[in-house]
Design a protein around this nucleic acid. Structure first.
Lengths: 243, 243
DNA sequence: ATAAGTTTGTATCAAAATGATGCAATCGAC
DNA sequence: GTCGATTGCATCATTTTGATACAAACTTAT
């Protein structure tokens, strides 16, 4: 199918979606000691946006978020959590979508379903960076990771959505022990610490961090040690199976 | 206006609402050392429900929640916070609404807007019990307070919504120091402690509770003491103005 | 082979926060 | 005044957290 055919199909699925409701995903990844967010970019308008989509009438909003996540990253079984619903009357203007559609030869009337008011249910996802294959959607041409400190201006209220997601993630980090989802299955204490330091944006004392993590008794030492570097090899950990 | 006229008017306002989106409010109050929730009751069907409503196309979801809260309690300027959005495909059946409408002489076709799928944005409110005048809406005939430990079976997924609201409130209690909103403007340390004990559902040591609250430096002693009881009169406190 | 340079794992001590108990102060009832 | 009740707060013990130190384990340079 050509892009234009994809878009035509999409525009025709309007009636299959739950009206007024959209889902946006803030997908966090961790790479080279930096917290990243997956963004989409529209080629014609150079605009950036969060991966998002609509909710089919026969799926739950959680399922919609899972589906969108899978479509944009190729991964399933991901840590995904709803964090806030954004319901302002005017969340921004839709010029970007109009322009994008226009560039594909579709002129949307002002009362087109895609240009109506939507509330957006925000979800954040924590993914293993190495397992993700960023995949653009039919609106966008590029999907890529952006450092949390260098997020460009996004469409609509998406910058605010990212901010709120980050705030929530910080709050949840200790409470729900959720950070591990950003690492690969096994990791060193050093990697875990730098993850925490990046998210919380502050330095932690190594000895105390280690003590705290071990005292929670959720980490399991893998009977294998690192090799290569010119120093004592660190233990490698994984999350204990909760039997 | 007669009740039936009210309902007729309501049924006709369908097009003014944002489709698929509803708001439900868990209104907490504190009375006689018990945590209460404001519920509505439908006379004909004996069914209970949370106060809720729909979002006008020209108001934000926050504004809708504030409005609904005001309509059901008569109070404004209330602590109100969104806590979760409930987006299952099938959140329960609408028989109660059908029966209620039917009892007023309105037979709804199965594709009536009121019987469509709605997602519900949940808000919880903390109100000063003494200032509230429970007011039924057009669906219901009675509005009243129910002890949190004796919530009857509610329509749809409203029991789950109450549970989630309570969980969130417990989490937020320390983090956001939000409990004061459930008390009148001035209160004793004893009242504050029993509020905390009720919400957290556990006993707290009096001396340590007092120490903790005072150390936060958000309480101000009112230069007036209690009277009446046969013991040392407690100080009366209020929240410091944050200048 | 040995020394040097790293990072890791953990012990140890100090400081702060929390848990538990006790007691003097202040009221009304008698 | 004495009694019972409750308050405000001090004081101790215990636990948690913050900060520092040091031996162990590895590679590289000599």
């Amino acid at each position: 199918m050509t892009p234009s055919q994809n878009i035509k199909t999409f525009l025709e699925t309007g009636p299959e979606y739950l009206p007024s409701v959209s889902v946006d995903c803030v997908i966090f990844g961790f790479h080279e000691r930096q917290l990243k967010v997956l963004l989409l970019e529209f080629k014609h308008t150079k605009a950036f946006a969060l991966p998002g989509g609509f909710v089919f009438k026969d799926e739950s909003t959680d399922e919609a978020a899972t589906r969108i996540l899978w479509e944009r990253t190729g991964v399933k079984d991901i840590y995904l959590e709803q964090f806030h619903t954004f319901g302002e009357q005017n969340r921004g203007n839709w010029d970007v979508h109009k322009a994008t559609m226009s560039s594909h030869g579709f002129e949307l009337e002002t009362n087109h379903w895609l240009l109506q008011r939507f509330i957006s249910i925000g979800y954040y996802a924590l993914v293993d960076f190495s397992k993700v294959i960023p995949t653009p959607d039919i609106f966008s041409d590029i999907g890529g990771w952006h450092d949390i400190h260098q997020i460009p201006t996004l469409i609509l209220d998406h910058n605010r959505i990212v901010e709120k997601a980050l705030t929530t993630l910080r709050l949840m980090l200790d409470y729900k022990l959720v950070g591990f989802n950003l690492l690969s299955e096994t990791f060193t204490m050093n990697e875990l610490q730098s993850l925490y330091e990046t998210i919380l944006d502050k330095k932690l004392l190594r000895a105390n961090f280690q003590r705290k993590m071990l005292s929670m008794e959720i980490l399991e030492r893998v009977e294998k040690k690192f090799s290569g570097k010119a120093h004592k090899p660190p233990y490698v950990y994984r999350i204990k199976k909760t039997t």
